[in-house]
Design a protein around this nucleic acid. Structure first.
Lengths: 113, 113
DNA sequence: CAGGATCCACAGCGATACTG
DNA sequence: CAGTATCGCTGTGGATCCTG
């Protein structure tokens, strides 16, 4: 894996950031966890429209690895797992918010193509 | 192309925004044009490290279509083409800046893996 | 100088089915 | 309930060469 891509990720903070959270669902998951700070797996799945089990669990695992999401598993039957944002994850929400605001403007500005 | 994806893009402003500028080079191009507001093609190419002709011209075309970048072509020999950001493109730069700041923190926070 | 065309590789994403 | 495994597509990005 010694492509130029790696160099970009190493040198450009934006590329680095997007490498962490540029996935298709990451933003939406973070956003969902922002709107409701503690959620269980299936709850999250219901809120993030259209996501599959695979993408959700995979994304959550990545976000947890990156230190953006906290996973707490309770040793009960039936199993209960709660997800929430870390400080670093929460630090991202204003940015998402701004991006959303920008997106809304764009959508309005060019309803046509 | 009637996938659920389209629904996301239509409904979620963030997904919409990322669909516009989530490409691999878009951010970097916008950033380069922010740092030096008017640039010619080859100048831009030199500044965006590692980009190929294909990706640069393709990205610029997209950004122009979306109304984020202005392209001015001078009918001279040799050809001269200058690129700059529109208002809407410039509106994005604070967001990129924040994202960069966040990225820097992340890089520092987890130098290890 | 400023691009376009072609071909190709690969990773991201997805559907479905299965497990502790 | 909270996930995993497998398999395959498809779209994005890349190298290289060509043109007005």
């Amino acid at each position: 894996m010694e492509t130029k891509e790696q160099k970009n990720i190493a040198e450009c903070p934006v590329a680095y950031a997007l490498n962490l959270i540029g996935g298709k669902w990451h933003f939406q998951i973070i956003w969902a966890l922002y709107k409701k700070p503690v959620q269980r797996y299936n709850e999250l799945k219901r809120r993030v429209d259209g996501i599959t089990n695979m993408m959700l669990s995979q994304s959550l695992k990545e976000l947890e690895q990156y230190g953006l999401v906290t996973r707490i598993q309770y040793p009960e039957i039936p199993p209960r797992v709660e997800y929430s944002l870390t400080e670093e994850g929460r630090a991202l929400t204003p940015i998402i918010s701004e991006l959303a605001r920008w997106g809304v403007k764009q959508m309005a500005a060019r309803k046509d193509s």
